[in-house]
Amino acid sequence: MVLQSTPPALAVPAVLFIVLLVVGFILGAIGSAVVRRLSNPVGKYRLFYLGILLPYTLLSYGVLALLAFGPALTATLPVTTTGPVGTVVADCFGFLAAGLVGLAAYTPTIRGVRSARDIDLSTSIAVARMVRFVLGASVVLAVVLLPVRLWDVTESPIGLSIGLAVVVGVIIGGSPWIITALRRTTKPTGETADRLDALRGRAGLDVRDVRILDTTDEETANALVRGPPRYRRLFVTSTFLDRFDDETAAALLSVQAGRVRAHLLVRQAGTVIVAAGFLVGAVTGFNPRWLLLAAAGGAVLGGFWLTRRGVRAADDYAAEQVGASTVADAFERYAAVHSMDPSRRRVQNPLSVNVALGDRIDRLRE
């Protein structure tokens, strides 16, 4: 769908954008003040980001999109942009605006995270990295969504599902290059490269190459695998290599190998695509509407259940590779490095895509 011939007014969406920024900052400040006083604040901060700040950012994007903030801002540019170029620019402005709202909400939480984890994370450095991420992600999303915009697949649930499948496939397939573009990475050499090769061999993790993410300031010790089957890339953080011994690192890499074997990303992406298709069908008036809404809810619950099974399958694979107790010890070490208390649930949350870390540890101990 191309830009409208008559440019929409900018005044109302611009004012609302400012309001969303202010509300986001207040939400982040109040939420951070509450979370800092809770037990296990690091774990609660993660829930706060995923359960409150992320939905608020998505809601802000939806509201600004309804008011045509992107097209209105594009119309004020000194250079006329029409057709596909104008669509990309307008979408980029829309994603950027929502990202800035999320950044406004995230900024007041940095001090609380720094205190909870006892790290020397500069607010200016954290904000600068997030700005770079928001800018890059806005451009990538705008370009990837261009075919969906031009073909206007939102009129059909099947068309939307196909469009989303293409978009998600491109993002997942291109993630090795996207992450490298959005984050500062280095290629391991010398002893570091030899160590990673040995760790991958113990973990049974088959990837094409490895990149190291610089996390000296935030001290996050993570590893993840991204990319299509013939070009998978392992990303490890510098803190992962510094804080974990070979036993712990091999166990955590085994979990990543298990996630690849369980096709965890495919399960998550499939849940989004199927549920979105049913939901759009209900919203756009396809009948029976209530049946489509029920199908969307069922797709979400079923997809989350499959994802949790994938998480457990990955843990089982890691236990076969290095031993169950070794994986459990690695999870406990991971929690300690991030100043977290492994959470446990008496009843599994059906709306959770993950399994509580404490429950995973207990399962491995048994």
Rank of each mutant, 00 (worst) to 15 (best):
Leu96Ala: 15
Thr307Lys: 03
Ala282Leu: 04
Gly163Cys: 14
Arg308Ile: 00
Ala165Asp: 12
Asp152Pro: 03
Ala29Cys: 04
Lys44Gln: 15
Val139Trp: 05
Leu146His: 03
Phe278Asn: 02
Cys92Thr: 12
Arg37Gln: 15
Asp217Met: 06
Glu191Asp: 08
Gly51Ala: 14
Leu10Arg: 04
Ala313Ser: 15
Gly70Val: 11
Ser175Arg: 15
Ala105Thr: 03
Ala318Met: 02
Asn349Trp: 00
Leu182Gly: 04
Ala269Tyr: 05
Val113His: 13
Arg261Lys: 13
Gly285Ala: 04
Leu53Thr: 08
Asn40Met: 13
Val85Ala: 14
Asp245Lys: 04
Phe304Val: 14
Ile172Arg: 12
Val347Phe: 04
Thr81Tyr: 15
Leu253Gln: 02
Leu121Ala: 15
Val139Arg: 02
Leu252Gln: 00
Thr271Tyr: 01
Leu38Ser: 13
Val337Ile: 14
Gly70Pro: 11
Val255Asp: 03
Arg117Pro: 11
Tyr45His: 10
Tyr49Glu: 08
Val140Phe: 07
Arg208Phe: 14
Asp245Met: 01
Arg233Ser: 09
Arg230Asp: 07
Ile119Val: 15
Ile125Glu: 10
Arg360Ala: 03
Thr284Cys: 00
Tyr61Thr: 02
Ala98Ile: 05
Arg312Leu: 14
Trp177Pro: 01
Asp194Gly: 00
Arg365Thr: 02
Val300Asn: 06
Val210Ala: 05
Ala330Ile: 01
Gly86Lys: 01
Leu199Arg: 01
Val134Ala: 09
Val255Leu: 08
Leu196Ala: 10
Val89Leu: 07
Gly43Glu: 11
Leu292Cys: 07
Arg259Met: 09
Ala11Ile: 12
Val131Trp: 06
Ile273Val: 15
Ala33Gln: 14
Thr189Gly: 05
Ala257Ile: 00
Arg346Tyr: 02
Arg114Lys: 09
Pro108Cys: 13
Tyr49Leu: 06
Ser5Pro: 02
Ala299Ser: 13
Val131Leu: 14
Gly159Ile: 05
Lys44Pro: 06
Gly174Tyr: 02
Thr109Glu: 13
Asn40Gln: 12
Arg200Pro: 08
Gly297Gln: 02
Asp120Thr: 10
Arg309Thr: 13
Ile52Asp: 08
Arg365Cys: 11
Val19Met: 08
Val210His: 09
Ser161Tyr: 05
Thr80Lys: 04
Thr123Asp: 13
Ala294Asp: 06
Ala68Asn: 12
Asn222Lys: 06
Val170Gly: 11
Leu145Gln: 03
Phe235Asn: 08
Gly99Asn: 07
Gly136Pro: 05
Ser115Ile: 12
Arg363Asp: 14
Arg243Asp: 05
Val19Thr: 05
Leu10Ala: 12
Val236His: 06
Val153Cys: 10
Arg114His: 09
Leu364Tyr: 06
Tyr231His: 04
Gly159Val: 05
Gly163Phe: 03
Ala223Gln: 03
Ile18Leu: 11
Leu47Pro: 01
Trp177Cys: 07
Met130Cys: 08
Arg312Thr: 09
Ser60Gln: 02
Asp217Thr: 11
Gln4His: 13
Pro84Glu: 06
Tyr334Phe: 11
Arg208Asn: 09
